[in-house]
Amino acid sequence: MWPCMKLRHLQELLQQIDDFHKPKILLEQYATPSHLASHMLYTIQTQYGDIDGKIVADLGCGCGSLTIGAAALNAGTVIGFEIDTDALEVCYKNVTDQEFSSIDIVQCDISQDLFTNGWFKKFDTVIMNPPFGTKHNAGIDMDFLKKAIQLSNNSIYSLHKTSTRNHVLKFATANGATGEVLAKLQYDLPSTYKFHKKSSVDIEVDFFRFEVIK
């Protein structure tokens, strides 16, 4: 399951990706930091072989860093799903700049059922950095996880706040997947919004792998 590029090169590639121009609080738009995204994707490929030659979905792809990273690691096809038009403009530019032709993007609301009808169990791997559900949108992270389990026939990789670990594990089991924490990470959130008083704040985040119960 040797990856087709070095970790350092993947990180350098993801550093070039444009970020949200005007992040929206309600959508909790925080870009996935490039060191974090590259380590996640590298682990998914080297430890589990779940990217190379797979059909991959990125839920809430934002500006596209996980999508582009998965394409760089030779995914068969990556389909990114995102609701926000402004994020998609940046994402489109990023995908076009990097010239990865194995990527497709769909604008949709992941919380609507429209979304899962035709995609049920079609993906081998779902990757996502969902909103954490802390800004007037409690439970949206579990909404994403539920949809991810419906979409995947094999595995899901996701980030969730460490403080909600037990809840996440129970929720996954109740919805047809077993979860394990691969790593606890310090997510360095730069001061994106006006209500942030410090220049950056570290929050503890779990990197999860879920396996769909067949």
């Binding site: 096809t77 389909i79 497709d104 769909v106 609507q112 059922d113 429209l114 979304f115 009808n117 035709g118 995609w119 079609k122």
Partner: peptide
């Protein structure tokens, strides 16, 4: 939009 994507898209959840 690739045709693989078109193959999966529906409008089923519309009223």
């Amino acid at each position: 939009m690739k045709l693989i994507t078109h193959n999966m898209l529906t409008s089923k959840c519309m009223k």
